[in-house]
Structures are given as C-alpha cells and as structure tokens.
Design a protein around this nucleic acid. Structure first.
Lengths: 148, 148
DNA sequence: CCAAAAATTAAAGTTAACTTTAAGTGGAGG
DNA sequence: CCTCCACTTAAAGTTAACTTTAATTTTTGG
C-alpha cells in the first residue's frame, strides 16, 4: 500500500483557511507557495504542506509583514539550503518584531483599561464632568513611558 | 496669575506624536479632534488634551479599528453626556477585541518559536532535509488548536 | 453524456489610509 | 520692507492588498 498524500482543491483550502479562493490564487501569483503542484490541466493541487505555508503566511501578516516582505522570504525558500542562515536570521528578527508588538499591545491595554474605568465612573455619575477632573489620561501615558 | 494652558502648533504635535502634519490634518478633517481650537486666522491650536486624543486614536488603530469606526466614536464624544453609556459599551468591546488580538499574538509567537527552532537546527545540520522529517509544523498547529 | 459546479487566467476595479500638490496667507527675524 | 518658514485648504495622486469580471475550460454527479 503506497502512501498517497491527500490533495485538496482550492475550494477546500478556502474553507479550511477561511481565505477566499481569489486571495489564495493571488498569493500563488506572488509565489508564496513554492511547493504547490498543478495538474496537467492547470488545476492547483494543495497538500498539507501548502496549507501549513498559508498558515505561516497568515502568521507573518499578523505580525505586520507586508506581502513584499513575505515574498522575499518565500524566494529564499526557493533557493534551498543556500539560504537557511538568512532564513534563520529572518525568523529571529520577525520573532523580535512580534515581541515588540506584544509589548505595545500591553501598553494599549492599559490605555483601554483606563478608558473603561473612566466610562464606568461616568456612567455611575451620569456625567463626565466630575470624572474629567479626577482621572487623567496623561498619568497613564507617563506611567507607560516610565515602565520602559 | 491666571493659568494659561500651553498650546502647540501642528508642527510641534507632529514631532511629539511622530505623525506627519498631513496625517494630523487628515484626522482633523475626519472630526477626530472634537476639542481642537483654531485661531481667528484658522491656525490649529493644540492643547495637551488634543495630543492625548491623538494618542488614544493611535491606540484604537493599533487594536484594529478602522478610521470609520474611530469616527463613530469621536462623533459620540460630540454628543456629550447623552452618549456615555454607549461609549462605555464601546470601550469594553474594544478592550475585548484587544484581548482576543493578544491571544492570537501568543499563538503566532508559538509558530515563530517553532520556525526559529527549525532553522536553528537546520543551520546546525547545514541542511533542512533532516529537520523536515523530525519537526512538524502541523503538530504546532494542532497544539495551538487544542489550547482552546 | 450532459448540465451544473468549480476551476483557470488576465486584466480591470475597489477600498482604506494616507500623501502630495498647488495656490495662497501670516507672522518672525534681518 | 522683504524674505522665509510654517501654516492653510481643496483636490488630485498613491499604495497595498485584495476583489471582481469576463471569457474559458475542467471536473463531477445523475
């Protein structure tokens, strides 16, 4: 029994990933899927590996990479082992980028915590007037700055 | 001694916030700065309050709100105390949105941790070939799923 | 075997969020 | 007074990341 890997159509991959088929085709046109195969008639045949690649692309997009940057990365893949050091550096840099983003999110959470507390008080009072005097956003900002 | 609050020019605010003047004007044109005053000759005079507003706008943008959504919020401000309950709800929802985003970032960090470990090993080996067999991204994905 | 559903490409269109340009005004320093 | 710099508006231009359209072809189920 020869092990034949399951292949997926673009429609199936669309359902699995939640991305429209047009987007997946668009990504393919940017050469984001270096392992993707096509049938003799030109129909795309996705394997689990291609789906994983799409998931990684989504991850990279979420950490703020542009499609141009992702393209640079997938082109490195196409170069094979010659580019592994470069790709190693790249991923460590991207990881750092995400950590910075997460730190920023923490700060934004503090601002939103303040805003929630502010409006909770305003709703209790029935007016903003008194809250404005007793709670200052500036204090939150300088607190955030000084955390460093 | 009457307390006169310091006012800033658009150029100063640009330096403080890191946003181009054109962007600040653009935000003003979208009515993002409900408290902003202009001189008799039409020159914008920013107070600390306006700068704080810009900081909050940046925070909202970072948590993923569109300018359209931010506009909806600043229009609520213009309605005064009548809209405080709505604004309270809004900020609690935005806060939840940020928390979800932060959770997603955690997942993305796990993917990037895997990618870093993968390439660290590949660089050690001098090739990807063996790593491909011993480390599977799919395991990371299913682990992430099952964390719930 | 045939109709319907799903796939293909190339090219044009869309949207959000700015950014630039053009033409002009106002105040500060020499 | 003159020049320069920072400010103004309105309108046009830009860019990224898709999305839609049109015209075909392929695959699939009865």
């Amino acid at each position: 029994m020869l092990e034949t890997e399951k292949v997926y159509s673009i429609g199936e991959v669309s359902k699995i990933t939640g991305l429209p088929s047009s987007t997946i085709r668009y990504y393919d046109s940017l050469e984001f899927l270096p392992y993707l195969q096509k049938s003799s008639r030109g129909i795309r045949k996705f394997t689990q590996r291609d789906i994983d690649t799409i998931r990684v692309i989504e991850c990279l997009k979420k950490t703020g990479l542009t499609l141009k940057e992702i393209q640079d990365y997938t082109r490195l893949i196409a170069q094979g082992d010659d580019s592994i050091v470069e790709r190693q550096k790249l991923f460590h840099a991207i990881r750092q980028r995400l950590l910075n983003k997460m730190k920023e999110m923490q700060k934004n959470l503090q601002i939103l915590d303040f805003k929630c507390a502010y409006y909770d008080q305003a709703v209790k009072d029935g007016t903003e007037k008194n809250v404005l005097e007793s709670m200052s956003l500036m204090e939150v900002f300088s607190k955030i700055e000084n955390e460093n």
